[in-house]
Write a protein that binds this DNA or RNA. Structure first.
Lengths: 398, 398
DNA sequence: TACTTAATTCAAATAACTTGAATAAACATT
DNA sequence: AATGTTTATTCAAGTTATTTGAATTAAGTA
């Protein structure tokens, strides 16, 4: 996904303006409703600069005035907030057997979703389907294409698996060596961001989920395997070669279950959709879909409880690793698991004592469930687009 | 070390200039000697903008012209490189029983070092000693205080241990709740950056060590415990509360050795200075200092070899974790261990197969030894100062 | 020797932010 | 109820650092 070495580039008036627009939008996002003077103070800009930017954003429709702040001295400050209907973004999740699409308004509310089964996920077949899907989403939401901020394309990682000595084949082998961003830019004629599912999911929680006001947190994504997305200082981590977050293949039990990657005792052999399916199949129970898991949990199925306990043990170890490495504000769980199973996993965790996260006076939990359900990845795709226009590229902290 | 929530701030002409200076300096650092036109092309700036900045940098003495590039068509391009003698930075490492000081010129060469044993490391006693040490360094290097870019203060983490439920007391308890940056700014009247040892060490490898041309890599720091510093896209990771990188307390053996943090089987109970001291003491061998380790290794001492094998096993697991999480360009080992012991550890690693780093066509090793020896932390302190003036705050790529 | 290529210089032009003075409107005080 | 204080807002320059464009310089190439 990333390969050519780039270099940080300089700023000029135009790029500075772009940055400042994002700084302002990010502040409004996190603090709405808010006024120009407050933004100016918080963002280190003059009132006039903010005023000009707000005026432009209001003209474009991204922000709307919502009355005046009273109750304090001084001239009442005009308050602004996001205009959720002014623009929208689309996320597309590409899986081996399905296409999933989510449309979000500017506030991050999901206003349309669609799932399409796919027999053949090769680029030739899938790309036209994605185009049709995007057209349907725009039509269904009764928006104009001009309001479309962009499309986020989400695929499971890792990328470049073909070059890895022992890693299994890629989950979508036909897509190896394809410049996803370029291909979809050509097909959809709009801005494209491509990412893996876990990172997209993390961004979705920051744009409109439980991590809305957090700048540094981890997201554990339960998919076919197990993925990790990390946001630090408001920016998603990518790794040197675009393969950040392959946490499924860290070893939590030396000499444990043989994994397809060549290791033994990989975390995702204990915690993932494939893991629970295999575990239950060995006990003669077929897990066809998420609903069947939900039902088994409602019935307190002993085999499932057993799996949850094993999974929770390994997850607890992973949490210790993440907390001590990243020192995050929290760790969010999400992805393909039903909410009830995720909650059961969380309740059975045995969080390690020896962790920098084990503080007195914590205000938020060390672990929490994400808010976007099992459309997370597609919603994350659309969230990445919204995230980009509200995320400053400068990282100047006084 | 970090607590109050800040907000990204907007840019203006002045901040833009600061950023562009750093972009130019960073490019020269990594590509010297180089010319104005080349910088302009690579940094996305106009020739004129670069020309003005280079002129200023040359006037200030930070850059020097070094002839012209010939052999290609067109007017010969004037080449510039760093002027190592134009400015300098000082790093101070604060340990419970010692103060260590390193002075670097602008290129990152160490031009002075000093070690001072300390009976009392409390702020009242240590701060005056630090001031004297800085004065001695300036005098010894025959520089003027005006050329001092700043002082980097390095301490072992984690910070805020007093608030942690089960973590041991801080290594320097008297320094808890002290605003280190503010205290030393007042005492030394120059810019101060405070960091933990592992992060400082990572930065030192990027400024003038084996990671000079890398933007994303990990550094494992062998100290009393075990620390982790990570650079991603040229920026050091800090965590939400300044405690990024406490990798010593991740569990690599469930139910293993009891650790002072409350966990069992923490990595640093197997890999650290304290670990090897304890292991050898149990076999009746006293490890007084680094030299005694070196000698034992030369003699192929069986107990030490045994420790190295155990340590290498646990380290290999940690490397799998780091590679699969961060997808770094490489992992650097450094810190308090003698070079020969570090090399022995590296040679006995069993790098995991199932890792995104296990690629064909790798050009650099998955693990390498750092270049700055056991003054790493102090050198890292000074490196942070140099790093700051050559590291763009904007992260505009493409 | 003439041509091509690329770096450099000089002189405007431009974009975006900052500054400062004047005005508006609410709450607080007497 | 009148006056004063505080804060937001507007308007009109002023400032900074960048970009643009034309002219110049100097090396390699045909």
């Amino acid at each position: 996904m990333k390969d050519i070495k780039t270099h940080p580039i300089g700023g000029n008036a135009g790029r500075n303006r772009t940055h400042n627009r994002r700084v302002v939008l990010d502040y409004v996002r996190a603090n709405e409703p808010t006024g120009r003077a407050e933004i100016a103070k918080s963002c280190g800009l003059s009132f006039q600069a903010v005023s000009n930017i707000i005026e432009a954003l209001e003209t474009e429709g991204l922000l709307v005035a919502v009355g005046h702040k009273t109750g304090v001295r001084g001239q009442p400050a005009a308050q602004y907030k996001f205009n959720p209907e002014s623009a929208f973004a689309i996320g597309v999740e590409l899986r081996p057997n399905a296409l999933i699409c989510a449309t979000l308004n500017l506030k991050g509310d999901c206003i349309y979703r669609e799932r399409l089964s796919l027999e053949d996920s090769s680029p030739d077949k899938a790309i036209p389907q994605v185009c049709d899907m995007v057209d349907r989403a725009i039509a269904h939401c009764k928006r104009s294409r001009a309001q479309l901020l962009g499309v986020g394309v989400v695929m499971p990682g890792p990328f470049g698996a073909a070059d890895m000595a022992d890693m299994n084949a890629a989950i979508l082998p036909d897509w190896e060596n394809i410049d996803i961003k370029a291909v979809f830019e050509a097909a959809l004629e709009c801005p494209i961001i491509a990412e893996n599912d876990a990172t997209a999911a993390a961004i979705s929680e920051r744009v409109a989920g439980v991590a809305r006001s957090m700048d540094t947190f981890c997201f554990l994504y339960f998919g076919a395997g197990l993925g990790l997305g990390v946001i630090t200082n408001g920016h998603a981590q990518n790794g040197a070669y675009g393969n950040f977050g392959e946490i499924g293949h860290i070893v939590t039990q030396v000499g444990g279950t043989k994994c397809s990657c060549g290791n033994e005792g990989c975390l995702e052999t204990y915690v993932s959709r494939l893991s629970v399916q295999k575990f239950m199949a060995n006990r003669g129970i077929d897990i066809a879909d998420a609903d069947s898991l939900t039902k088994l949990l409602e019935q307190n199925n002993p085999a499932l409880i057993e799996w949850i306990d094993i999974a929770a043990t390994h997850l607890s170890q992973a949490i210790g690793i993440l907390e001590n490495i990243f020192d995050p504000e929290t760790i969010v769980f999400g992805g393909a698991m039903p909410d009830s199973v995720t909650d059961a996993l969380i309740s059975r965790l045995q969080l390690p004592r020896g962790s920098v996260a084990n503080r007195k006076n914590r205000k938020i939990n060390r672990v929490m469930r994400g808010s976007s359900g099992h459309y997370t990845a597609a919603i994350g795709g659309a969230s990445m687009i919204i995230h980009q226009i509200t995320t400053p590229s400068m990282a100047l902290y006084s």
